[in-house]
């Protein structure tokens, strides 16, 4: 394994893991449900993509690499679908993207125990 590949995968792995941490931070910091959806997008695309790329550089470019590509493909197909499903359910469940203050409370169906 050449040194250049090692350095590149270091950068990609740490960058991807940092993006995941920032995405998780966004999940905590952003003020309402609809803005938090975008933090999830960073984890699903940037974080996962960079980590998988960094791992792919450490393989011998064989079937293991193909499996990493397949994981990336599955994530790229399912992650936006799951995000859309959560967002659409929230819209049907009464959360409003135009009125952020309404999204901070419970939705009336069940009261949060905290």
């Amino acid at each position: 394994m050449s040194a250049a590949l090692d350095i590149a995968s270091w950068v990609l792995l740490v960058g991807g893991a940092l993006l995941m941490t920032i995405g998780a931070l966004g999940l905590i910091r952003l003020p309402d449900f609809f803005t938090r959806l975008h933090a999830a997008g960073v984890v699903d695309t940037g974080g996962a993509g960079l980590l998988l790329l960094g791992m792919a550089l450490q393989t011998g470019f064989d079937l293991v690499t193909v499996k990493l590509v397949l994981i990336g493909l599955v994530l790229a197909l399912t992650a936006p679908t799951a995000s859309h499903a959560v967002a659409h359910s929230a819209l049907l469940g009464g959360l409003s993207p135009d009125d952020p203050s309404a999204n901070r409370a419970g939705d009336g169906r069940d009261e949060a125990p905290d």
């Binding site: 999940l27 469940g93 409370a105 939705d107």
Partner: peptide
């Protein structure tokens, strides 16, 4: 606070 936040 909403269930959707938890599921997300």
């Amino acid at each position: 606070p909403t269930p959707y936040d938890r599921i997300l």
